[in-house]
Design a binder for these strands. Structure first.
Lengths: 140, 140
DNA sequence: CTGACTGCAAAGCGTTTGCAAGTGG
DNA sequence: CCACTTGCAAACGCTTTGCAGTCAG
């Protein structure tokens, strides 16, 4: 993703395309897997000076407008991924944390059923689905 | 769940049934929804003196042997629920955090497909599925 | 005596907040 | 001039660790 593309994406959500945000978004967009905050900081800092606090604020901002997604797969760890708009789920290794995307989604049926069965909800905004296992490297 | 039943469950997993663990497990078993650590502490303390640290240690222990399940639905918050063995998922309100169980599960197909498509995993140990929405109370 | 459980204090880690300085329209 | 962004320091909340005291076999 070029700097121009990043700026366009940001401004399409009415977010000012500051250099730090552009750098952040570009790093996020090159990552196929969800990234931790500390990893993200290192990578962005190769490009531009950036404070951890600013990163957090911008991640929250981008998350609020839907440009990035936040994942909470384990205690005390937040992962972020660029929201390309392609709906997908994750296959996660309990050993090393390796993550692979799953591009199938069969949640429609269960979502409909759940809406029929509940009296407390009228709609579903989104959902998460994660598979956990031990990857072939860890199980050796 | 009686104290005796709690003790039996614990000893079946080779965990010593101390009074604190029995009290903790009993509170957990009466809860239909996942509970936060602070809530849990309050409820158990109505029964017996219990330090927060001991709670954490025992929750980790019970989680490791599979008696309780740990959920990470939002940043920095761990929820715990008694693992009755009845596989289920959750419908969560983004507004107030209200949680309802979903007892349908249609994940078999997608699990099989995912295993076929990956080269990095050979098996799935478990999975999570959560629906998010705004409950009828919050959407008023 | 030995190993396990517990409480207390302190540390650790990820995240957020307050404030002052800097930037751009 | 004003609203927005940023960095720094400090605060905050949740969780873990170290250590000493206690208890059961």
């Amino acid at each position: 993703m070029t700097k121009e593309e990043a700026k366009d994406i940001l401004s399409s959500k009415k977010v000012i395309g500051t250099p730090k945000r552009v750098a952040l978004l570009r790093v996020l967009s090159t990552h196929k897997k969800p990234v931790s905050v500390s990893e993200l900081l290192k990578k962005v800092q190769k490009d531009i000076e950036l404070d951890l606090v600013t990163m957090y604020r911008n991640l929250t901002l981008l998350s609020n407008v839907g440009i990035v997604k936040e994942l909470h797969l384990q205690k005390g760890v937040s992962l972020y991924e660029y929201n390309k708009g392609d709906h997908h789920h994750h296959f996660i290794c309990r050993g090393c944390g390796y993550i692979e995307d799953i591009h199938d989604c069969l949640s429609l049926d269960i979502t409909e059923k759940a809406l029929k069965n509940t009296k407390k909800f009228s709609s579903v905004s989104d959902h998460s689905f994660e598979l956990f296992g031990i990857c072939n490297v860890c199980s050796k």
